Simulated scan of single mutants.
Amino acid sequence: MSQYQRLLLIADDDFPDSAATERAVALAIGTGASIHVLALVQEPARAHMLELKMNEEERAEYFERYEAWVQASVALLQSRQVHVTFQAIWTDDPLTQILIGIRELKPDVVIKGTQMLPLLKRVFMTPLDWDLLHASAVPVHFVNHGARALPNVVVAAVDPSNSEPALQSFNQEIIKVAEGFARQCCAELHLVYAYDLTAAFMAETSAAVCWVEELRAALFEPFKALADSCHMPDSRRHFVMGSPVKVIKDLVQELRADVVVMGAVQPKGLGKLIGDTTERALQIQACSVLTIKPGSHLV
């Protein structure tokens, strides 16, 4: 049986010509999965902030035009021999509607185009992508706008520094999901652990220099054990010192990686595995991200 049975695609302004749509179609063709398109209809931005909102008649006409456009776009996808259904919903709360769609459809993965927001805008508002990666009970695949239909290189980002069994199990889950995704796409899989010794150097610079090799060795052993457990070839293991986001960004460029598989863990419960690294990784221009939470299996 294929790894994927149901894909939930969140339509955006570029639908059906978006990279996210092409990724969903390519996965569906390769796996026989069905695609359900969720189109969230919102009132268009007004030219002037003081302009009144649409009345009921205007809203109904706008929704009707939007739904007709989605239906025509879905018909184009269906002509490519892909089983596609769709639903258009008027909403002022996109996150809630997506989560309702996830509960009702029970997809194997949610596919959505990445929101590329400038830093200043992210300061004043939490991007939908950030809320979604933390709230979704199933894996979410954020697809970069320039992504190819199927990836050639997939990178699994792990952090084996914490010996707590739940966190070690989550590392194994990240690798399992990455392996399955890479296999489904016939892509090459790599493993990366970005370890940051900044705190040690800041605490005592002279002492940290003397102990750096011992610190590296202590961090390398659990990474090696994790890589050995999944039979990762040495040439595809990346144990790199530096801040996680920079390490991932540099590795994406070096390998020309298409997808990074990362954990999304909220502050409560298990605690932050990678902090806000996953959120910031969504802003890496050249790469797409597949996020998972503990228990959100793909297989």
Rank of each mutant, 00 (worst) to 15 (best):
P160R: 03
D92N: 14
G275P: 04
L77V: 04
S288G: 10
V37Q: 04
Y66P: 04
G101Q: 11
S206Q: 14
A281V: 12
T205D: 12
D228L: 09
H145Q: 15
E164K: 14
A203L: 12
A88I: 11
V123G: 05
R216L: 10
W211A: 10
Y4H: 13
E61I: 12
V245S: 02
H83F: 11
P165T: 08
V41A: 11
I111C: 03
F170Q: 02
E213W: 05
R236W: 04
I284G: 01
R183C: 10
E279H: 08
A135D: 12
D258C: 07
I29Y: 05
P294Y: 01
I100H: 14
H190L: 07
V70W: 00
R23L: 05
A11G: 06
C287G: 06
T205R: 15
L298W: 03
H238C: 03
L255V: 01
R280H: 13
F86P: 02
V153G: 00
F170E: 01
E179I: 00
L40M: 08
I174H: 00
P233A: 07
I89D: 07
K106F: 07
K272T: 14
I35T: 01
H297V: 06
A11V: 02
W130Q: 10
A33N: 01
V25G: 01
G30P: 01
V247L: 04
L189N: 00
C210A: 14
D14W: 08
V212N: 08
N152P: 10
L273D: 00
V41M: 08
V155P: 02
K249S: 05
A156R: 02
D258N: 10
L95V: 13
L270F: 13
A149M: 06
I29E: 11
L133T: 03
D14Q: 13
F124N: 07
V110L: 07
P244M: 06
E213A: 12
D234W: 13
G269D: 12
A60C: 08
S161G: 11
D234R: 15
I100N: 14
H297C: 08
P233K: 08
A182I: 00
F239I: 09
A28N: 02
Q97D: 15
A207Y: 13
Y195R: 07
V138K: 03
Q3T: 12
C210I: 12
S229F: 09
D14M: 10
E58F: 11
S161Y: 06
K246D: 15
A24R: 00
E61H: 13
G295S: 09
D276P: 05
H83Q: 13
